[in-house]
């Protein structure tokens, strides 16, 4: 993909999508002078080379600047607005895991675009699977219509609120586990990567959270 196309997409995406601040940390005069002589893509490639060498501030700045590009790629792939940040986070994690594969002599934007495209496709597939399950639920609802739809909807809303309130009262570890694994349907490895916690600890927290919620709603011990 040409850089002009990416730049055009970014410009159009910036009009449609909320953008991320361009910098997290102030740049030094030396790096600013060096960077202004290069294209944004070349500058980001240089930043990634510094990140590969362990420069944390440049790395954070680079990731923050990459968010807009990732969102634009995901948007172009057809990811819904509500799920754009899921793709952003998955892509950032992948960038972190595979940063050693970047060759500073090549385009950083092309490298990130490829990873973001892949994560966007994964998100769309995951969403497709959920939709198929939901279609099955619709079929069940059509087959067994509720005579008290309005009251059932209110009851459902109340139960959802109660559930959210109950989740909010859980200890932080359990709350994080149920939100990430249960509600957002992320895999154990993804959540472990995202939260920096071990899979075993996440499993234990999820189990305890489910037990606590079950106890609260059904009185099980």
């Amino acid at each position: 993909m040409s850089h002009a196309l990416i730049a055009g997409t970014l410009r159009s995406a910036d009009r449609r999508l909320p953008s991320w601040p361009s910098t997290l940390h102030p740049m030094t005069a030396e790096s600013t002078a060096a960077d202004t002589s290069k294209s944004p893509d070349q500058r980001r490639a240089r930043w990634m080379a510094l990140a590969q060498a362990g420069d944390r501030r440049t790395y954070e700045k680079l990731l923050a600047e990459s968010v807009a590009l990732i969102r634009a790629v995901a948007w172009r792939k057809g990811v819904a607005h509500d799920h754009l940040d899921d793709v952003v986070q998955e892509t950032l994690i992948t960038i972190h895991r595979v940063r050693h594969t970047f060759d500073p002599g090549r385009s950083y934007d092309a490298w990130v675009t490829a990873i973001a495209s892949r994560r966007a496709i994964d998100a769309l597939r995951g969403h497709g699977r959920r939709v198929r399950r939901e279609l099955h639920d619709d079929f069940a609802l059509d087959s067994h219509p509720d005579l008290h739809d309005a009251s059932a909807a209110t009851e459902s809303l109340q139960r959802a609120r109660q559930l959210h309130a109950a989740i909010a009262e859980l200890p932080p570890g359990q709350r994080e586990a149920i939100e990430q694994l249960g509600l957002r349907e992320r895999s154990l490895s993804e959540v472990a990567e995202l939260t920096g916690r071990k899979s075993g600890a996440l499993k234990v927290n999820l189990h305890r959270a489910i037990k606590a919620l079950r106890g609260r709603f059904h009185g099980d011990s």
């Binding site: 590969q52 952003v88 986070q89 950032l92 972190h96 970047f102 920096g196």
Partner: peptide, 26 residues
């Protein structure tokens, strides 16, 4: 919010950053 969770993730990835050995060319 999504923006603050992105920032939190970036901060965490930054703290985990260690120098890496670049992959050899194809």
């Amino acid at each position: 919010s999504a923006t603050s969770s992105n920032k939190t993730l970036i901060d965490r990835l930054g703290t985990e950053l260690v120098p890496v050995r670049r992959l050899l060319s194809p």
